[in-house]
Design a protein around this nucleic acid. Structure first.
Lengths: 336, 336
DNA sequence: GCTATAAATGATAACGGTTACATTTTGTAT
DNA sequence: ATACAAAATGTAACCGTTATCATTTATAGC
């Protein structure tokens, strides 16, 4: 592999001139510029990024900590990240952490060991050690999707509370007054906020919160199925099930249909995220649309701003949601 | 950020000894080892990877070229890759190429510019320039999922032809003799192989191939929907639809149900991949299960072997598939 | 105590760029 | 032609490691 010295010799100039030809072409006279470019061509020269990065101290790598890539929503978020990263000359180092804190810390440490410039964390966990926390200094990190409130860190989020309230109001407006909520992972702030929104909406119309109607889930199809199965065993069944993501809603629908219930006549079902499959489920799913790709795009762009010193405050960017009403929710039908 | 010199001074040894303490601890006497480790601790020293990589010429980065991360199947493949990469101390540089050749070449060039050691390509396209092809030298590349036959390159694949034949035989055995096939992207070898398998099975029982029953698709839910809609307009309708992936099968089912057809009584539908949603669709989808995570694991492991010179031939690893029969396929019911 | 050998450590040159500073060349005004 | 500023180019230090080779120190055998 040829290096800058070979090119310099070939062009009959110094290595500095070769470097300048590539980095600041305007500072090199047209005729030497041509000579150098010809030599580069001839030598098949590709500048060694490692060397350049070592000298400049910038890796142009961004670590992405994602709990599970196999999650359709996250896959879309990453897709958006990739787009902006590519445009701005950055590369994404992907880490599928399975929500394992040790793995997250391991990858975050790549920043300290100069293997990456910054981190995008899609989960509510701070992978940086306390010791390194400098009160007035931002970590080179951006938090997206799931809010990490303990640490001052630029964040891209949805108003989950408002979104959950909007969906709950939609169900209430259809006449439902026993609405079950299938939660996400217990510790997630996302879950907490959505529960809050759900309660807000119930309070508005004076319906008492019933603990029984809150069921644990983990965002998987299976947990949605099981949650629905559990709800059907209750003495006082709900008439609507609001799931904190679409996968669980689809799992729940599968269970309900298997038990012979019609959707939405016998039970309304709602989801959250508006994944591709939501539109194609049977019946098509009522859900909250989140701008997944936009989450990714904004997060990367924000992180680059932080790295380049253009952002110095832990700003929060709130992205809009949309209530998408399809056919899985409908008016309450009185049981005969 | 403290460097190796600071640590060396702190421990009262040379930089070489510090380096050795970390890389080959056995070559350092126990007492200096302790002294050095203490100094490292005290200085909060993290070796600079950029420097180490520049010197050693290895980046421990692998570029992954994936057409669309948002594809559920690929997401699982990447998940498997990540697992092995992490275990072996490698990092994945993710590139969502949207099947754009220019983007693919751009990322592949990272190998030449020392930003990555190798490439895993999930699509049938060679991102390396011809000029660099050395007849007897392997590219630092592994091809997975979609076979790239023009270039000698280690490959991880499924016997798509056999799998498609197996599914077609299953449908034939149920009494279907007009079986439609919804294809993937036209240029894909994967599509070509699956068509070949489909024809193999038809030939075995002496059914003539009908061009009309071959419909174009692009692996999206929408294209499955449209393909089904088209098939329903045919004068001689098929009684079964075999889609080259599960998303299209789910799109097709949505269309059929909307048109009032029952599945499988009026029309059997089969997919390919066995994504999570397949089990939870209505009805649960008959499909070909592919070991997606295993694709990823094998690909990474193979690439590392190539990089370390343990593999010098363009070996093909063929992974097993499994015919998963659920309820979307059933015996032919004669129309009244 | 004295070699011969092995083990541990040190000094220093790479790795391949970038960049501050020094030097040369070019251009312009007198 | 001369002086002087501006533009172009060259020189060499530097980024933080690792690897090679030389040197010192420990170990063993006699």
């Amino acid at each position: 592999m040829s290096n800058i010295r070979v090119v310099a010799e070939l062009a009959g100039v110094s290595v500095a001139t070769v470097s300048r030809t590539l980095k600041q072409p305007e500072s090199v006279s047209p005729k030497t510029r041509h000579r150098v470019l010809d030599a580069i061509q001839q030598a098949g020269y590709q500048p060694n990024q490692l060397a350049a990065r070592l000298r400049s101290g910038k890796t142009h790598n961004l670590v992405v900590l994602v709990p599970t890539i196999a999650n359709v929503f996250f896959a879309r978020v990453i897709s958006g990240m990739q787009q902006v990263a590519h445009e701005k000359g950055f590369t994404l180092l992907l880490s599928n952490t399975q929500a394992d804190e040790q793995t997250e810390c391991h990858y975050a440490r790549m920043v300290e060991s100069a293997a990456a410039d910054g981190v995008i964390q899609l989960r509510a966990f701070n992978p940086f050690k306390r010791e390194h926390v400098n009160e007035h200094q931002l970590h080179p990190m951006v938090n997206a999707c799931e809010v990490l409130d303990e640490v001052a860190c630029p964040t891209v989020m949805l108003d989950n509370r408002a979104a959950a309230a909007a969906m709950t109001r939609h169900l209430l407006a259809l006449g439902h007054n026993r609405i079950a909520l299938v939660k996400g992972p217990a510790r997630s702030p996302l879950t907490r906020d959505r529960i809050a929104g759900y309660r807000d909406a119930l309070n508005e119309v004076g319906i008492n919160f019933d603990e029984q109607l809150l069921v644990a889930g983990d965002f998987s199809l299976k947990s949605g199925y099981e949650a629905a199965a559990h709800l059907l065993t209750l003495a006082e069944r709900p008439t609507a099930i609001f799931c904190e993501n679409d996968e669980m809603a689809m799992g729940a629908m599968q269970c309900l249909k298997k038990m012979g219930l019609r959707i939405p006549e016998d039970m309304s079902v709602a989801g959250f995220d508006d994944i591709n499959f939501a539109e194609y489920s049977d019946p098509p799913l009522t859900t909250i649309a989140q701008p997944a790709e936009e989450f990714g795009r904004t997060a990367v762009s924000l992180l680059i701003d932080v790295l380049q010193g253009r952002v110095t405050k832990a700003a929060k960017v709130i992205l809009p949601f949309e209530l998408v009403i399809r056919n899985s929710t409908g008016p309450l039908h009185k049981q005969p």
